[in-house]
Design a protein around this nucleic acid. Structure first.
Length: 420
RNA sequence: GUGGAUGUAGUUCAACGGCAGAGCACCGGAUUGUGGUUCCGGCUGUUGUGGGUUCGAAUCCCAUCAUCCACCCCA
């Protein structure tokens, strides 16, 4: 019996791990440039946390959560998203008492039971930003600016930003009613899914892809006409800040975030080249969430992005990734007698921070030279019978083919000065 | 959860129901200790898995698993 990786998961192999380190490191760097600090939470939480925050009726909670009970019968779930755990930690650790705002970033694996497809996995890696503690529209723009700065730093070009406002809870309630009123006469003509959505989440009617449902969309009332003055002002201000930051966007009233906690600003970053799973990041404001799960009434905004889709998008644009650095020195020892000298040179080089390779397994001198060449090492340190007798290893520059014998003290000097 | 396509060597792909193959990659060698190219040689298969039809199955049928595409969902 061969064991196989669970469906919808994947291994990050050594040939790809440098890419992952790279995109994660760039994210860290960019987030910190905006003053955000990393928070790390467990990959599982009480299931109820997600039920409360994402919404009992959301697909994520209804069909996609990996649930389990522990030995004492407690109900847990592997986290399907990152915001609720961060907010839980914020409340539990009284981060609000530290003064100032909480500017947090995170990344790590998320879990959703879903049918795998390109850009969609059961264990997938997200990065995210959460700004907790202000309703100021500048921060809506700042959070968006972080994502864009990140994409720019990575060299990604072919994407677009769409924004919307879904208003506060009050606005969205009046809007839902307006939508129901509009769709009521056509209810029989809608697809079965939409008939269900009609009651639970009328806004979902707007992004149904069934042609017959789509037909009603263009005359449907727009959320933007159902914002109260405060929400409208907020959205206008967000746009103003985006304009001032030279951030291009389009307003798409159909953007409806899937998780229940979003209020006001909602946004999405789309890469059309990715096909069906074309959203590489999305987020919005969630002013009601914190009080909803037991904290003080606190406004907040954040977003999450998917590393897999980001990498796919970068590959589509043929962006080059940094590779692991090749060895500084490849040590070639001819025969068992040279082991002592080889090991002492290796130890010295590694102590000084050089990356040194050595493979006594290789048989012939030629095979060792080939291996050194294949490793793309900058130098070969050759230790053969002559070198051993004279106690003078040969250092060969594999790029220029120049080589020279050094006495041990001379070699030590070269190593210590990092002249390689 | 629904519909469709595809599964053959490490990889990319061939093979009309009749001997499972090629390129690339990998390993070794080409006169004692110098890398590339070239040349020579070598290795890798339960044809995803399990059944069935057939004298005979990689090939046809069924099931199953996996991947991909679309729906759905979302990052």
């Amino acid at each position: 019996m061969n064991y196989r990786i669970p469906r919808g998961t994947y291994d990050i192999l050594p040939k790809d791990s440098a890419k992952w380190q790279y995109v994660q490191n760039v994210f860290r760097r960019v987030a910190q440039r905006f003053g955000y600090l990393e928070i790390v939470t467990p990959i599982f939480e009480m299931a109820e946390l997600f039920e409360r925050s994402s919404g009992e009726n959301s697909d994520v909670v209804q069909k996609e959560m990996y649930r389990f009970t522990d030995q004492k019968g407690r109900n847990f779930a592997l986290r399907p998203e990152g915001t609720a755990p961060v907010v839980r930690s914020y409340i539990e650790n009284h981060l609000d008492r530290l003064g100032g705002k909480s500017k947090l970033y995170y990344f790590g694996p998320m879990f959703r039971y879903d049918r795998p497809q390109a850009g969609r996995y059961r264990q997938f890696y997200q990065y995210g930003i959460e700004f907790i503690g202000s309703n100021h529209p500048y921060f809506d723009a700042e959070v968006i600016a972080i994502e864009l700065a990140y994409l720019e730093e990575l060299g990604l070009k072919d994407f677009r930003l769409e924004i919307n406002s879904v208003g506060c809870e009050k606005c969205s309630r009046t809007y839902d009613e307006a939508l129901r009123k509009y769709y009521q006469p056509h209810l029989a003509e809608l697809c079965p899914d939409c008939q269900k959505r009609f009651e639970s989440k009328p806004r979902r009617l707007l992004d149904c892809k069934v042609p017959s449902c789509k037909a009603f969309r263009k005359d449907a009332p727009s959320q933007l006409n159902y914002l109260d003055q405060e929400c409208k002002d907020h959205f206008d201000q967000v746009q103003k800040y985006l304009d001032q930051m030279d951030i291009a966007y389009t307003i798409n009233p159909a953007i409806v975030r899937g998780l229940d906690y979003y209020t006001n600003t909602a946004f999405e970053l789309i890469v059309d080249a990715l096909g069906a799973q074309n959203s590489i990041a999305g987020g919005g404001r969630y002013n009601a969430l914190i009080s909803q799960i037991g904290g003080k009434d606190t406004p907040a905004i954040g977003f999450a992005g998917g590393f897999e889709r980001l990498l796919l998008a970068m590959e589509k644009e043929e962006i080059e990734f940094p590779q692991y650095a090749p060895p500084d020195v490849y040590v070639i020892g001819m025969g068992a007698a040279t082991t002592d000298m080889a090991l002492s040179c290796l130890k010295e080089m590694r102590k000084h921070g050089l990356y040194a390779e050595y493979n006594p397994d290789k048989s012939s001198f030629k095979a060792q030279m080939k291996a050194a060449d294949a490793s793309q090492a900058y130098y070969a340190l050759i230790i053969g019978a002559d070198e051993l007798a004279a106690d003078m290893p040969t250092l060969k520059n594999l790029r220029t083919s120049e080589q020279k014998q050094y006495s041990r003290p001379e070699l030590s000097h070269v190593i210590a000065q990092r002249l390689l």
